[in-house]
Structure formats: C-alpha cells, structure tokens
Amino acid sequence: MKTLLINAHPDFTNHNHFSVQLQDKFIEKYKNEFPDNKLTIINLYDLDIPRIETDGLLAIWDKQKSDIALNSTEAVIAKQSAALLTQFKDYHRIVISTPLHNFNITSRLKDYMDNIIIARETFKYTESGSVGLMTDDYRLLLLQASGGVYTNNDRYTALDFAPNYLKEMFTNIMGFSQFDLVRTQGTNTLSADKVWESANINLEKAFRLFYEK
C-alpha cells in the first residue's frame, strides 16, 4: 500500500526519541506486511518548507488572487509549496510521526499543514460551510510521543490540542475517511516498559485498521 510517512521531529535521526522509535516500529511492520512496496519518508526539518510570511506564502496568495505575476523569489517558493501539495494528494495513506512541543504540534509541522490545507485543492468553501475534497478513502495515522499522559481524564486531557487539531483538519476540513492515533505517552514519568506496554498493543490494532480494505 502506497504510504507517505512524515517525520516532524527536529532531531529526526536520533533514535533515542520515543516518537522516532515508534516510527521505527511502524516501518518494520510496513516492510513485513508490504515487502514489495516502497515507503516514502520525508523529514520536515530536512526540507525547505514555505511559511505564511509577508514575503512568503502570504504575498504569493495575495498576488495569485489578483492575478499578479510573481517575482523570481516568490515563484521558487510557490513551486516548493505546490510540490508539497502534489506529493501529499498522491498518497491515500498518510502517517505523521511527531513529538509534542509545549502541548502542541511542532512548528515545522504547522508550516507543512499551511501548504496542504488549500482551498479548492483539499477543501472548498460553500454557502453552508467548508467541504472536504479528499474523500476517496484517504486515511491518517498519527504516531505521537508525549512526556505527559493525556488519557487519564484529568487537567491534561483538556490540553490534548495536537491530536484534536490534526483530526479535525484531516477529517472535518479535508474529508479524510479515517484518523487513528497511537501514543507513546508518559515518557517523562513512566518507565519505558510501561510506555511501550500500551503503545505496542495500540500500534498493532491501528496498523490493521489503517490498511484494512
């Protein structure tokens, strides 16, 4: 199954990080399940990702609305953004591997999202609200590591912004048919064995659902 894996960790080559280890476990399962398929992996902190800035995407979008020609620098940025969008739309299985940074997604992942949540490309506006355009069995699997535990129905549960944001953007806004989440949580408070006890079980279940026909 053709799959795009997006690593959103700044230190993506360091396999001591729980999110990177969880990603490694996913890759191992993928290779065992689909030995003849190639898994496409991109590391966001190894890419030049356009940002919403006055001399970046903001200027480009304003000019495109008014049918004004882009300058040479803007043309390069527009091409980079279009390439990210094209690649994203070409995969019906998307995996995001990320840690939490200050209770939210990493800054580079937010920049990436700003290049794929594009009106008339991945969603459209209507009089009754926005409608997702990615409805042809697109699925998202989130692999997330966090120092705290967010499933104990305590004050941290209300701070579970990252997965809620991603779920709503992919399913509610862009129209993905499925969102699954596997956590390695409590990495700063629990033993590694305890962290992986539930994560391994959840990964097995999520992996089956993710590729279920």
Rank of each mutant, 00 (worst) to 15 (best):
F18I: 01
S19T: 09
L22D: 07
D24G: 11
D24F: 05
K25A: 12
F26H: 10
I27L: 02
K29R: 15
K31I: 03
N37V: 08
N37P: 00
T40W: 00
P50L: 03
I52S: 05
E53W: 07
E53D: 10
T54I: 12
G56F: 06
L58K: 14
I60F: 02
D62P: 00
K63G: 04
Q64D: 12
S66V: 00
D67V: 01
D67K: 13
A69H: 01
L70P: 10
L70W: 05
S72C: 00
I77L: 15
S81A: 13
L84K: 02
L84V: 02
L85V: 03
I96M: 09
S97T: 06
H101W: 15
H101C: 04
N104K: 01
N104R: 04
L109K: 06
L109F: 03
K110P: 00
N115R: 01
I117C: 14
F123Q: 07
K124A: 14
Y125V: 06
S128M: 12
G129S: 10
S130M: 15
D136T: 07
D137Y: 10
D137A: 11
Y138A: 05
Y138N: 13
L140R: 09
L140S: 11
A145D: 09
G148C: 01
Y150T: 04
D154G: 12
R155A: 13
L159R: 07
